[in-house]
């Protein structure tokens, strides 16, 4: 299998990597240090590896890295940091929506994808938006509350990222 050099813009930063075709976007992101992107089921069922690819929510375990050549990727760590968290990340922390934390980066990216197109979602719309993200700890109540709280904070004029 021949390697090919691809260009990815990850969290605003241009990266070039050489790799064979049988490497997923999930693998290359984690190998480059973006370990906020979690390796979960590797079947597209759990959403732990969800990132935005050109603004659209995708499971990075089901995207071949070559298919992302020349495209923009946003992961949860590109949204904000411990020092400068994004309102979505603050809302998840403040509402107790994080228990083990494994689903959290994917949940946050699903929230970002929702609020980008629907800044004032109903509870039904929130549940639909995170329906591809599994949490095995909390039972979702706090996560749904976190998304609603994030929408309020962004509407209230914080940094909307």
């Amino acid at each position: 299998m021949d390697e090919r050099t691809i260009r990815l813009k990850i969290n605003g930063r241009e990266r070039e990597v050489s790799l064979p075709p049988n490497v997923t976007l999930l693998r290359v992101l984690r190998d480059l240090g973006y370990v906020d992107v979690k390796n979960g089921c590797e079947k597209g069922d759990c959403g732990a590896c969800a990132v935005l690819l050109d603004g659209k929510l995708v499971n990075s375990c089901l995207v071949l890295a070559w298919q992302a050549d020349g495209r923009e990727i946003l992961t949860a760590s590109g949204l904000g940091s411990i020092e400068h968290p994004h309102p979505i990340q603050e809302a998840f922390a403040d509402t107790g929506a994080v228990q083990c934390g494994y689903c959290t980066p994917g949940m946050i990216m699903a929230t970002k994808a929702l609020l980008d197109v629907n800044p004032d979602p109903s509870e039904e719309e929130i549940r639909e938006a995170i329906s591809g993200n599994l949490c095995r700890c909390t039972g979702y109540a706090q996560i749904v509350e976190a998304v609603a709280e994030a929408a309020r904070r962004i509407a209230g004029g914080g940094d909307s990222g």
């Binding site: 659209k56 995708v58 499971n59 639909e128 329906s131 591809g132 993200n133």
Partner: peptide, 9 residues
């Protein structure tokens, strides 16, 4: 169909 992230692909 499936979930939002799957529908996008």
């Amino acid at each position: 169909f499936a979930s939002p992230s799957v529908r996008n692909r």
